[in-house]
Amino acid sequence: MTVGKIIIHQDRCKGCTLCSTVCPQHVIHMDDTRLNARGYHPALFVDNGDCTGCAVCAVICPDVCITVYREAPAPKRARLAEGAAAL
């Protein structure tokens, strides 16, 4: 599975919870233990390796707080060429 990672800009977040409701891997939670500079409970990314970098959270975030990273996929074409050469 593709490995992804997101960075949530903590002080832009308004704690609307939309990202945590749409995340298919359930790796975004609302941080109820602290407040950010604007007085909201920000969203918190749990980096447990489940994130696939699908960017659904970034698409729904109304405050554009989320930057999404994804591991570069191994070049499929090169693998196919390798397989053909092995035959």
């Binding site: 490995v3 992804g4 990672k5 960075i7 832009r12 308004k14 704690g15 609307c16 919870t17 939309l18 604007r38 909201y40 970098g53 960017a55 970034a58 698409v59 729904i60 975030c61 109304p62 405050d63 554009v64 989320i66 930057t67 999404v68 990273y69 994804r70 591991e71 570069a72």
Partner: peptide, 30 residues
């Protein structure tokens, strides 16, 4: 930012850094 990963979703250039005055969850931001 993790250097080994590629950015798939980033802040658009056509927006400024100013935080919006909209309420949490308002779809104006989207």
């Amino acid at each position: 930012a993790p250097p080994e990963m590629q950015v798939v979703y980033d802040y658009p250039d056509s927006l400024t850094d100013t935080p919006t005055s909209y309420c949490p969850g308002c779809t104006h931001g989207i």
